[in-house]
Structure formats: C-alpha cells, structure tokens
Nucleic acid binder design. Structure first.
Lengths: 233, 233
DNA sequence: CCGAATTTGTCCGTATGTATA
DNA sequence: TTATACATACGGACAAATTCG
C-alpha cells in the first residue's frame, strides 16, 4: 500500500502522474473508479474528478462514462504551446526590440491568398510587410494580407507606429483561427529582408483568423536561420 | 441587457467568449467578479469559476486573486498542439504506414549528444536511425540517441519489429521532456534517406525526455519537404 | 510596514444528469 | 433495460494571494 501524501487536486494529479511514470499503472491500464480513489486519497470525489479531468485534458488519461479511466496508450500527444509574442520574446532575450514597416498597400491578392481569405479571385486586399528586429538585426519578416471587406479601416491605420498585429488585436475581433508551422527555403526577397544567404532554411509560422465566417487576415512569419521554437512537456 | 442562455460551465464559457469577441469586454478589460457573474448567470459561483479557469488555461483571461479577472491583452498565446503519432498521421491520410530500421548500434556519442544526454564526453550511447514511410515513400527520418546508462535493455530490443519510440513508451517511463521545432537544410545524408534534393528545407521536431534527473533519449524527426504541422485555435 | 478588505483558489458533501457497456 | 462510472451542478466554507489604506 502506498502512502497517500494527497491533499488538493494538484497533489492527486502528481501522485497519479507518479504512478503512471513508475509503471504502477502502465499504458492502457484501467484506474480504480473515482469513488475508490477518493477513499484511498481521503478526499471528496469531486477533488479526484478535478485531478483526473486535468490529466485527461493533457492527454495522459482517457476517460469514458461507464467504461472508466485508463492510462492513454500514446502519451505526449497534447502539448500546450505558448506562441511567443515577438516583442516579448526579443525583449526577454535581452536584445532591444525594433519594428520597421516595409510597406502597406492595397493590392490585387494572388489566387492563393484570395482562396485563403475566401474572397473572389482577383479581389484586392491590404498587403502589409514588416520586419521585427532584435538588437537592430532582422529577426522575423512578416508578410500579411488583410481582408478589406472585413476590416476596411485598416487602410487608414498608421502601421508604421503600431504593428498590424497589435492594431488587429485591438480593432478586429476574431473567433477562431488556424496555425501551422513549416520549413521553407529563403528566396532572394526573403534573404534580402532577413539579411541571410539565399537557400537558408527558415522556420515559418502561418496564421489565419476568422470572425465567424468572415476571414480577417492571413499572416506568415519567417524567422531567421537557426530559430527554434521551444516548449516543455 | 443580454439574455443569459447559461447553464453549465461550458455555456458560460461560450457567453464570456462571445462578449470578448464582440468587444463588449475588449482586451485589457476587467470582468465583474465571480459572485456578480454568478448572480447574472443564475448559477453557483463554482460554476462561473470553472468556466473562467478554463479560459485562463487557454490564455484568454488573466486572473489574480484580489486583482480580479481581465481579458488578456495578447490573445492566442497558448495553443494546445496535438503532436501527431506518425503512424496515425500517415494512416489517417489514407496512405499505408511503413517502418524501416536503418541501423541501431552502440556508438561514441558526439559532444552535443553527450551534453544533451548529460553523460560524460565520449560516452557511448545507442544510436538508432529509422525511416517512417507513407505509401512506401519516405515521410520522416528519425535520428535517435538513447542513454544506455538509463535504459541498457534497449540494446537487446528488436527495433526492426517495433519502433524505438514504441519500445521506449512501453519500457522506459519519463516524467518530463522538451520539444522544439526548427527548419533545417537537407544535407546529403538526409537527402538520401528522404529521397529529396540536397538543400531542401526540412521541418525538424526535436524531443528530449527525462525521468527525474536521468536523461532517457533525444530524438530528431526530419519531415520531408513541404510538410506542415497544423493546428487550430 | 502592517492590517484589512477583496477576489480568486480549493475543498467538501450531496444530488442529479448522461453516456454506455 | 439496467447498472455503472463519469460529468456537472449547488452552496457553504475556508485558505491564500494581493491590493490598498
């Protein structure tokens, strides 16, 4: 019988995690039901429930009514990734943050963008290109298209003073979005903006946002060579 | 006055989200305290608490005792990313999954690996190289080092039948890990394994795991050119 | 610097709803 | 259909953190 150090749902979470890690409950194993665990830990069932639910949210446990709770066969599935705010990320590294608008203009959007923004082919959209600098050196090149049907007022915003991202956060709500990561080769334009060799491998973060069915914007952030996005499990 | 459709913490979560999205509560705005919200929604404070806590977990709200609850200034900070199990990802795309062990042997680990595995420089470690195939074509090249001081038994495992990842999941528990994403240029070796041109940009996922203070393994997964890791917000 | 007031965090015990084997 | 196990709710209570005077 294991000593029960428990108190508070976080302690229970820790103890359950320990048992999983030490294979007392190996992958696929069924756990005792909440009532039994509550008795063992000497707490209310609601407290056990809270702990197990949190672990299920993390993907460590799988729970189904009537079927019970089991240790997930494939752990490490869900990770909470904190998307760094570029400015904060740079300032935390100790370097000074700089922002530089390259250009902002209404342009006929390329087909791929019209598709992404769900506007008819050939529609004009607002193109914004900007650079985020760390210690005066290029850190991220931002390439953004804004749907002027959804957010017409962006055309009058002074994007030299406030980044498009900040402006949108304050002026254009969104309800959902997509996020993707990929690797891309630096072409001449990218290499010039980031002052890196043509052919470098760049980490690319692409984000699209919608408000209901209306598309708002689609942005690509190209990080300089060698960038790593890190998180812990 | 808004109609309160509330019932269940999820409904409250939805209503709060709606108010944030429609700028009834813009970024930075303070929310009423839990008690007042409970009165407005006609439910118990614990129910409100659950809803707001869930939103705080998502990074939508920021909460502090006594200070209260406010809408986060920078939304979209925390994202739950589901790291796809390679086999599942391939099978879901409709292609057949294949696994191919390239080699597995005890080798003196390069300094960077010894550093990552926290073993003395020049220590031997177990090197595993393998390929995951989708529809018979290379999809991911896996390059792994396993700490044989922590997991000596891996040397007797038949890694041609079971992938190192699967074997470790079943045989070597870990308590914490790191995860990073980056972009890398395909050198000749990588290009050969993935049958892609030298100089391609590859998406690279790097994972390190520990059990307490003991390092277990460090793996790099190189995805073929054009791969995108996607998620939604 | 300290105490008081406020707000969230967590707990308990109970009750009822709901999916499912 | 029924029994089981999880999901959620309620209200009361106290703890902990932090702001503010």
């Amino acid at each position: 019988m294991t000593k029960t150090p428990a108190k508070s749902w976080q302690a229970i979470q820790a103890e359950v995690t320990r048992r999983i890690n030490t294979r007392i409950w190996p992958p696929g194993e069924m756990l005792p039901n909440e009532i039994d665990l509550a008795v063992e830990f000497g707490c209310a069932r609601t407290t056990v429930n809270r702990a197990l639910q949190a672990l299920a949210d993390k993907g460590v446990l799988e729970r189904r009514r009537k079927a019970g709770t089991r240790v997930a066969l494939n752990p490490v599935r869900k990770v909470v990734l904190s998307i760094p705010i570029i400015r904060e990320e740079i300032e935390q590294s100790g370097a000074g943050y700089g922002y530089q608008l390259i250009n902002a203009q209404k342009l006929p959007a390329p087909p791929a963008i019209c598709d992404a923004l769900q506007t008819p082919a050939g529609t004009k959209a607002y193109s914004v290109k900007a650079l985020h600098l760390a210690g005066g050196k290029p850190f991220v090149f931002e390439e953004r298209w804004v749907n002027i049907l959804s957010v017409p007022t962006i055309q009058t915003a002074d994007l030299a003073k406030m980044s498009a991202n900040e402006w949108l956060v304050q002026n254009a709500p969104f309800s959902r979005g997509t996020l993707s990561f990929s690797a891309i080769i630096a072409d001449e334009a990218l290499a010039k903006h980031l002052t890196c060799p043509v052919g470098s491998a760049l980490f690319c973060l692409e984000r699209g946002t919608w408000n209901g069915e209306q598309s708002i914007t689609r942005a690509r952030l190209y990080y300089g060579p060698g960038y790593k996005m890190e998180t812990s499990i």
